[in-house]
Design a protein around this nucleic acid. Structure first.
Length: 239
DNA sequence: CCAGACGTTGTT
DNA sequence: GTCTGG
DNA sequence: CCAGACGTTGTT
DNA sequence: GTCTGG
């Protein structure tokens, strides 16, 4: 699945790749976590700019419009591609509010013996990409409580990373895919919800510090070389 | 009809 | 074990 | 997703 | 809001 990712791409490169203007001052994020505000590309749904692409900061964890409070969002950080067209929590967003979340890697944890080892999944060419996402507007009760939130669509893991984890986010690799995903044709968008070509991605182990959301620095994306096990002390004496 | 859920992952 | 915070 | 808390009373 | 369970 996808519960942590990175987006360190320079704003200028993001504007170019996603064809969207932004006045936002985007700092690199090596450790984006649920409930945090992340840059998301959507189409304006109303007003004179209707249909235009915009980059907005949204909270990760979709809060449906009918929710009494925003707590439910924590449980909605991912949406299964297989059921996104049916589930009450996602159906409306899937039909009308598909979005693209800029990223340049995501993290998956694998339990290895006693430790949970994090891996970072990236494109083999190290280029940024987009996650297929859905967004919602939650207006709450009072004035000024409006909140935009998003979720990341997941599918089966592609073969090259399946040894780490059996699910992965739906990845969009180029401008055509971004346009189709956000476009009006729901069924065309649905065709994109597949595991990616295994040749396009790879995974490598990273520092376990990424587990703590308070850590957010460039060291988190550096490959680590697994520590060799300390040699066992000699049992008995040879002499 | 009303009440209550509405989600995913991983593990057993 | 389960919930909350980030 | 993981990490870290998980509680109350009274006193300062 | 809308679906499911009873």
């Amino acid at each position: 699945m996808c519960g942590r990712y990175s987006i360190t791409t320079a704003p200028e490169a993001m504007r170019h790749l996603f064809d969207v203007e932004t006045g936002l001052n985007l700092e690199p994020r090596w450790n984006m976590a649920p409930t945090q505000a992340a840059p998301v590309i959507k189409l304006m749904t109303e007003g004179p700019a209707r249909g235009h692409r915009v980059l907005a900061m949204m909270r990760w964890g979709l809060v449906p419009s009918w929710a009494k409070d925003t707590d439910i969002g924590v449980k909605m950080i991912n949406a299964r591609a297989e059921t996104v067209d049916e589930k009450p929590a996602f159906r409306g967003a899937y039909r009308y509010r598909r979005c693209v979340i800029p990223a340049d890697g995501f993290y998956e944890w694998r339990t290895e013996g006693k430790v949970k080892q994090p891996y970072r999944v990236v494109r083999r060419d190290r280029a940024p990409f987009g996650f297929a996402g859905l967004w919602e507007l939650w207006e709450g009760t009072g004035e000024g409580s409006a909140l935009e939130t998003f979720t990341i669509v997941t599918t089966d893991a592609t073969e090259s990373i399946a040894h780490i984890h059996h699910r992965m986010p739906v990845m969009l690799f180029d401008r055509d895919a971004f346009a189709t995903w956000m476009g009006p044709d729901k069924d065309a968008a649905g065709q994109l919800m597949l595991p990616c070509d295994p040749g396009l991605v790879e995974a490598y182990p990273v520092d376990r510090r990424v587990g703590n959301v308070r850590n957010d620095d460039a060291g988190l994306v550096e490959p680590i070389t697994p520590k060799p096990k300390p040699p066992k002390p000699m049992q008995g004496s040879l002499f």
